[in-house]
């Protein structure tokens, strides 16, 4: 167990009730959190917080490889989202680090684009406020919104669906607190479209665990999958998941003979949605919640961080 870095010392005295800053190692931190926050479940992630960990992660970014491989689970994604989310690194700092590593705009455009997504989500949050918790538009699935379950099924929460991919994602989510964006989208699509669970139940579950748990990018991305923040629902098939996960789940899946993701996009669309016509024809209708924002925020210009990109099918 590596020791904890020596904390920055304070120039003022401590008082009773101050939480300890001097911890021998991560085991001590784990014990402290268990004692101070007994209601917070699970254990520490293998991912560490703090500036050193953030700088190490930032030093490893490779914008060129990111461009080519980002949609693959083993691709050169940056892993910076938890640090950006909590301001350990600023989005401007990451932008400048990308600029320093590229020779041409082409080499960095995908990664800069992804940082743009994070800025976009923050601006949306400023705009919508608590409205991100509400569906932004009507669903384009052809299903009654009330027909979606309000609670996450226990087999999904516990990682016992019998689907190696989804149970694998659950394990990563609950132990490490970080998932590749493509895995987030597959899981969200499975929960919402295959299991007919309301996007909010899944989105809230993700926020319990994700170290980068940003309500704006998370909730609006779940809505993007569900189709209440996009023109059509996002779904995938086995071929897509197998390709971008290098077959790591399908090879050992006990449900491979009855994979619910098997089929062409046309076949799955027919199975999952009430009518294909509805996917394309429902007009966009926004329900904004400006009235929930305080005067202070409405007068201020946005700045940003945080998000989830859109892999192609």
């Amino acid at each position: 167990m590596p020791p904890q870095p020596i904390p920055t010392s304070l120039s003022w005295s401590e008082r009773p009730g101050d939480l300890p800053r001097d911890l021998a190692d991560r085991r001590a931190l784990d014990r402290l959190l268990a004692e101070q926050f007994p209601e917070a479940g699970g254990r520490l992630s293998s991912l560490r917080g703090g500036r050193d960990a953030a700088e190490t992660t930032l030093s490893r970014i490779d914008p060129r490889r990111y461009t080519k491989s980002r949609n693959h689970l083993k691709g050169a994604v940056t892993g910076l989202s938890p640090y950006i989310r909590h301001g350990v690194l600023s989005l401007a700092e990451v932008r400048d680090a990308v600029f320093q590593r590229i020779r041409s705009r082409d080499e960095g455009s995908k990664l800069i684009n992804e940082l743009g997504w994070r800025d976009f989500w923050q601006r949306m949050w400023r705009d919508l406020g608590d409205g991100i918790h509400d569906s932004q538009e009507e669903l384009k699935t052809g299903h009654d919104p009330a027909s979606y379950a309000g609670e996450l099924p226990e087999d999904i929460r516990a990682g016992r669906t019998g689907l190696a991919c989804m149970d694998g994602f659950q394990s990563e989510l609950t132990s490490r607190g970080w998932l590749h964006n493509h895995a987030r989208m597959w899981m969200a699509a499975y929960v919402v479209h295959w299991r007919k669970v309301h996007w909010k139940a899944g989105a809230d579950w993700f926020l319990e665990h994700l170290l980068d748990g940003d309500p704006s990018s998370n909730h609006l991305s779940w809505q993007w999958v569900a189709s209440s923040f996009s023109h059509k629902p996002y779904f995938f098939n086995k071929g897509n998941l197998e390709r971008f996960s290098d077959g790591q789940f399908c090879r050992r899946c006990s449900s491979s003979e009855r994979c619910p993701f098997e089929g062409s996009y046309e076949q799955l669309e027919g199975q999952l949605f009430a009518s294909q016509g509805s996917i394309r024809d429902v007009p966009t209708r926004r329900s904004r919640n400006h009235q929930q924002r305080s005067g202070r925020q409405q007068e201020l210009k946005g700045s940003g961080q945080a998000a989830m990109a859109r892999p192609k099918r």
Partner: peptide, 20 residues
């Protein structure tokens, strides 16, 4: 229902700053 790993990440990040 914030999990312990999220709190740990916040705690470790906070320890790098001169803050109570």
């Amino acid at each position: 229902r914030i999990s312990r790993k999220r709190l740990g990440f916040l705690y470790e990040s906070a320890l790098d700053l001169p803050i109570t």
